[in-house]
């Protein structure tokens, strides 16, 4: 038998679900109108409106947030095209279902930043099989030949820029420690490859420590703190991204070694630029998040209009030293 209180709670629970659904739907509307611009108010011929699915690996990742900023800015220029952004929450399986939905819906093109290039193979096959043009962004697909184009940067190059500038700062000799990204992620593999390529040219630079901190600032801080407590003699730390470089910097400051150790990362996030300006991070390497985002939207629009698109659109990495901080900070505004 249900008590009065129980029944009341049931009603409240249903009301909450209904409310959330309404809120969810209405936010969906607003987000697609902002993407569509003003045109959506007078679109009676919705059937003619082209739709592009944008599959993003993780909305909560810093870099991807800026990349989407670039995408949304560019998308506003094309009010006749609807761009539907999907968050895979860093789960390859979720992304697979999103791609299946896109295929079922019959979208006109798909922009995809794969969660995992290996796991993405079957879903790309599926979309290509349904003749949906695919634009990969930031991470090159294993079956890239099935896609129209790849918009992104060369991760190996970023590792090379990072390590060669650090080697110059060290005059070609010294002990370095490396903070790696999550093992198996495409940028981790290729940034490390770039670093190792450069290290071969510098026999007097020794890698005395090498750990993964999973791209996270707090984990990098924990790892670096332990390094500083060890007997290791570290002259420089190179990190696969700025978040980990900042973590190492905070640990170095704490250990009173901030001035003695050169630390650098990749991405040129706004916060990293601040630290480079203060001279606390030696330098960073700019990966043009917004540029990649804009490039992907541009490529999708060209595909829809039947214009030719290059097989690869490479947005170069750039070295950011103290004197260039202002120039790069402007890119985020």
């Amino acid at each position: 038998m249900k008590s009065k209180k129980g029944r009341l709670l049931t009603i409240i629970a249903w009301a909450l679900i209904a409310l959330m659904l309404m809120v969810g739907c209405s936010t969906d509307d607003t987000s697609s109108t902002t993407q569509n611009g003003e045109a959506s108010s007078d679109n009676n011929e919705q059937g003619e409106k082209k739709k592009v699915g944008v599959l993003i690996a993780d909305f909560s990742d810093q870099f991807q947030v800026y990349m989407m900023d670039g995408m949304k800015e560019e998308a506003e220029k094309y009010p006749d095209i609807e761009f539907s952004f999907q968050d895979a929450k860093y789960d390859a399986n979720t992304q697979m279902s999103q791609m299946e939905n896109m295929v079922a819906e019959g979208v006109d093109a798909v922009i995809v930043m794969p969660v995992d290039v290996q796991a993405a193979v079957p879903m790309i096959d599926k979309a290509a099989g349904a003749n949906i043009p695919i634009i990969s962004v930031n991470r090159k697909l294993l079956n890239q030949e099935k896609a129209v184009t790849y918009v992104g940067s060369d991760s190996v190059e970023s590792g090379r820029i990072l390590m060669s500038h650090m080697a110059e700062l060290l005059d070609g000799k010294g002990n370095i420690a490396i903070l790696e990204g999550t093992q198996g992620h495409e940028p981790q593999i290729n940034r490390q490859k770039g670093i190792e390529e450069v290290l071969e040219e510098y026999p007097d630079i020794k890698v005395v420590a090498d750990q993964s901190a999973d791209w996270y600032r707090d984990k990098a801080m924990t790892v670096a703190e332990s390094w500083f407590q060890s007997t290791l003699d570290i002259d420089a730390i190179v990190a696969h991204n700025d978040e980990m470089a900042i973590g190492a910097l905070l640990a170095a400051k704490d250990a009173g070694k901030a001035g003695d150790i050169l630390i650098a990362g990749i991405d040129a996030t706004p916060e990293a630029l601040d630290y480079v300006e203060k001279g606390e991070l030696a330098f960073t390497v700019f990966q043009d998040a917004k540029g990649q985002g804009r490039g992907a939207i541009d490529a999708a629009v060209k595909v829809l209009n039947g214009e030719p698109v290059e097989k690869e659109i490479i947005i170069p990495y750039e070295l950011v030293t103290k004197d260039k901080v202002a120039e790069y900070r402007a890119k985020y505004e």
Binding site: S60, R217, E271
Partner: peptide, 13 residues
């Protein structure tokens, strides 16, 4: 404490 330690409030922390 974590935000103060990382000098940043991170939604992914």
């Amino acid at each position: 404490i974590l935000a103060a330690r990382l000098n940043a409030g991170q939604p992914t922390a």
